[in-house]
Design a protein around this nucleic acid. Structure first.
Length: 283
DNA sequence: TCCCATGTTGCTAA
DNA sequence: GTTAGCAACATGGG
């Protein structure tokens, strides 16, 4: 369930281990992963992160792209005991990299390296004009904007909530209503929250671990995520939880602005509009 | 048993 | 064209 700080953590841990490493063997335990067999003998030139994705850049110009989605882990050199849900093992001349993933949403694939310009990375520091430009003419809630991987790379549900809380922006405030000064707060909050989370080696809510199986520590510093009903660390008002786009959204209704439009419970008509919904999975 | 989950994609409807 | 809301993917935990 890694977001930017968790992926950054494992990339930083992998870089010194894998730089120059030679792939000796590839074991695939899940047919959903399409891994070419010709990786054996290739050398890792460098490790990089793109948004929430890990890239192992190979000497032959290709990149092994790994996206952990909800429950993927990358582990280094666990003993010969394989952890449960191991889906792929890359053996190098200096150790083994395992991809374990109970929910099997993670993806691993190999592509030619691309020089295409990526989306802005909030750890590098977004700039306010770029944010204003990206949001221009759009009309969606601030949180949805931060979660949109085509606009900003790497922010997920936990950190979107935390960043907006720090920036004192209501998650439902729409991009069009956000001033330049507020974008500047978002930019600074994003950098600060994500940097601290990287320093803490990420957030472990349930089972995420770093490359060496250790839990992160940033869960001890969350201000609002998962804290419904607890006092806002800034103003003491109870943290609220509402759903946006199917995701739990935690915020302080007091100091993140009582918004004019959003922020109120959805008007009653939404509730009954679901009459034509497709039936749930039958079993 | 039911509800929830750190992600993404694809569909429908507005 | 854009946005909102789901359901799907598959599994485990509370």
């Amino acid at each position: 369930m890694p977001e930017l700080p968790e992926v950054e953590t494992i990339c930083r841990q992998m870089e010194p281990l894998l730089r120059g490493a030679v792939i000796l063997d590839v074991t695939v335990r899940d047919a959903k992963l399409h891994v070419p067999k010709d990786l054996v003998g290739r050398t890792v030139r460098t490790v990089r992160r793109t948004g929430k994705e890990v890239g192992l850049v190979l000497g032959d110009g290709r990149v092994i792209r790994i996206h952990l989605r909800m429950s993927g882990h990358l582990l280094w050199n666990v003993g010969r005991e394989e952890p449960p849900h191991t889906r792929c093992i890359l053996s190098f001349d200096r150790g083994r990299l395992l991809l374990a993933d109970p929910r099997r949403f993670a993806t691993l694939s190999v592509h030619p390296d691309s020089t295409a310009e990526g989306v802005p990375d909030p750890l590098e520091g977004l700039n306010a004009p770029a944010l204003v430009r990206a949001a221009k003419g759009r009309r969606l809630p601030a949180k949805a904007f931060l979660l949109d991987q085509k606009s900003v790379g790497g922010i997920g549900n936990i950190y979107a909530c935390e960043i907006l809380h720090r920036a004192k922006i209501n998650p439902w405030k729409t991009t069009g209503q956000i001033t330049r000064r507020e974008w500047d707060r978002v930019r600074r909050a994003a950098r600060s929250v994500l940097k601290k989370a990287v320093d803490g080696r990420g957030t472990t809510i349930s089972d995420w671990t770093d490359l060496f199986g250790r839990k992160g520590t940033y869960q001890n510093h969350l201000s609002v995520y998962g804290r419904e009903g607890e006092p806002c660390p800034r103003c003491g008002a109870p943290v609220a939880r509402r759903v946006m786009g199917g995701r739990g959204t935690y915020y302080c209704p007091d100091c993140q602005g009582r918004d004019e439009k959003g922020g109120l419970p959805p008007s009653g008509k939404n509730e009954k509009m679901d009459a034509g919904r497709r039936p749930r999975t039958e079993r």
